[in-house]
Amino acid sequence: MSTTNTTTPDLAALCADYWSTSITDIHPGSIKVRGYPIQELIGNVSFPQMIWLMLRGELPGDEEATLLEAALVASVDHGPHAPSIAISRMATSCGLPINGAMASALNALDDVHGGAGQQAVELYADIAARIVAGSPFEAAVEAGVDEFIAAHGKYLPGFGHRFHPVDPRAGRLLALVDARVASGTIKGRYAAIARGIEALLKKRKDRPVPMNIDGVTAVIYAELGFAPELARGVFCLSRAVGILAHAWEQRGRGERNKGPMPRQIPYAYTGAPERHLEQS
């Protein structure tokens, strides 16, 4: 004999649990973010502080917030030859609205173009774990670098730059990191690891391979306690500003169907020469 479940589920509780969140609580006439009424946050916290609150649940200190802000400012743009920026401009010329152009560009920020910051944080964290486990500093750096290269190839994220002999953003950011270490805001563990990687690369290659923007912002995100995936997410927030600016500029030009290079410049065709179907 079959039995019928006569228990009536609490549908209100089921629905409440389905999209449960610890981030924002909204009721008619009330919006609280992480417990703070939104009207108290407006005009009193900066956008970097708001990002931190949303992602971490608490407000950062002033020095933490300004260091995060510096990383955000440094990463907004790298010119129209950057793939994500070029995509935003091409998409705009193809008729996409601003949101479509931004979405197209942001989707390009994956492992190769846009993922170096996350990968550098992961590399730093691996080396830090080796040190905590008792490995001497230089041995931990060398083992971490070697394992990363064995797993991912010779490209080491965060070091060297295809365009800049010395990344003009890196020195300023490192100075801000050092200032926060001196003030006790951050510990400097990941800054030391990144500099240890620099020293190892210089020794191996017999020339400097300095940190680039991804390597230094990875130091900042790691020092501030952001998870590796959030390092990429925060970078996307920053680069979205440059993407928006370029899409808007392109919209004002009135160009249509802008391709990846001027049509006057030919590409190299490497296929078969002209041929024809045999007639039966």
Rank of each mutant, 00 (worst) to 15 (best):
D178A: 13
A91T: 09
I220S: 00
A139T: 15
N5C: 10
A105N: 02
R251S: 11
P273G: 07
V216H: 07
P83G: 09
T6W: 07
I38A: 11
A129E: 12
R232L: 09
E229I: 06
L200R: 12
R89F: 06
I131D: 00
N44E: 07
A120T: 09
R189S: 03
G134H: 06
A82S: 13
S88G: 01
A151Y: 00
A129M: 14
D167I: 09
L174Y: 02
D10M: 00
Q279Y: 09
L96S: 10
Y18A: 15
R130G: 09
G160L: 11
S2M: 03
A218K: 00
A12S: 14
P28E: 10
T6A: 09
G252M: 03
A179S: 11
N99C: 13
Y190Q: 04
N5D: 13
P168D: 05
S46T: 11
I87R: 02
L156V: 14
L224F: 08
H113Q: 10
V45P: 02
K258Q: 13
R180F: 00
G95L: 15
L96E: 06
S84P: 00
G259F: 07
I51M: 04
L109R: 01
V145F: 03
D146E: 15
E58W: 08
R169L: 05
L96C: 12
G117Y: 01
G252T: 06
A199R: 15
H27I: 07
P60A: 13
I85R: 01
T270L: 14
E223Q: 05
H152G: 11
T92Q: 07
A86L: 12
L72D: 00
H164S: 06
F47P: 01
L200G: 05
L11A: 07
R169Q: 03
G29Q: 11
A108F: 01
A179F: 03
G134T: 08
P262C: 09
K258L: 14
G215H: 05
G271Q: 05
I42W: 04
Y18V: 11
D214A: 12
E278N: 12
G95A: 13
L96H: 10
T7C: 03
Y36K: 02
G188V: 04
E63N: 08
C236Q: 07
R195C: 13
P37C: 06
K203E: 15
A231L: 00
I220H: 02
Q119A: 14
P273T: 05
D111H: 14
A268H: 04
D178H: 10
